[in-house]
């Protein structure tokens, strides 16, 4: 009973704060409305008994949204967030599309004949979920993680416009690199 109430509050709250992202007129508030939506979803994950995943969603989403807030406010059309803005272009069209998608997904979740539970829930649902998702492909998954990380580092290296010739001179003979920001190691 208590679980149902918590789930209902979090589900409605997650959808409502998700909608608030497109209603509020400030990028900062949109960021935190989206964060609230994620956090309420994390509570639903916790209700499934996936405590590690649920707490991890809270941890990662707070950090991620704070970094994202910097970029959202930097890129969007409200300089410094001081001018009113809206997340929506073509208001009627986007409203129809999003309502349609929401109804479609909700109908799928409600109308699908879910199987009855057989047997007991596992002692550690997070581990069971991980094994169900990855199974014997664990090695592949770990390699994919490394490749993704290498891609991020490579993309950052490629996008920075200052190369080693800018830092160490044309013949790379400079003792200390010429950097716009000094850094703490005196290099």
């Amino acid at each position: 009973m208590a679980e149902t109430v918590v789930f209902a509050v979090c589900a409605v709250g997650a959808v409502a704060s998700g909608a608030a992202v497109f209603v509020v007129d400030s990028m900062a508030r949109a960021t935190f409305a989206l964060l609230a939506s994620f956090l309420l979803t994390a509570v639903a994950v916790l209700l499934l008994g996936l405590s590690y995943l649920g707490v991890l969603v809270i941890l990662m989403m707070v950090m991620e949204m704070m970094v994202m807030a910097v970029f959202m406010i930097m890129y969007m059309m409200n300089p410094a967030g001081l001018m009113p803005m809206t997340m929506v272009h073509n208001k009627v069209g986007s409203l129809v599309v999003s309502a349609g998608v929401f109804l479609l997904l909700a109908a799928g979740a409600v109308l699908v004949p879910w199987p009855e539970r057989t047997g007991e829930p596992p002692a550690d649902p997070t581990r069971a979920l991980g094994e169900a998702v990855m199974g014997e492909h664990m090695l592949v998954m770990m390699l994919v993680g490394l490749v993704l990380f290498a891609t991020m580092v490579a993309a950052t290296v490629l996008t920075t416009h200052r190369g080693r010739y800018d830092r160490y001179g044309d013949d790379l003979r400079r003792e200390r690199p010429d950097d716009p920001i000094g850094g703490g190691l005196g290099r």
Partner: peptide, 18 residues
Amino acid sequence: DLSVGVVWFNAMEVLIWA
């Protein structure tokens, strides 16, 4: 005494960023 107490502590202290 959560089974993921260390992660919980970390998640709550990160709220200070926000």
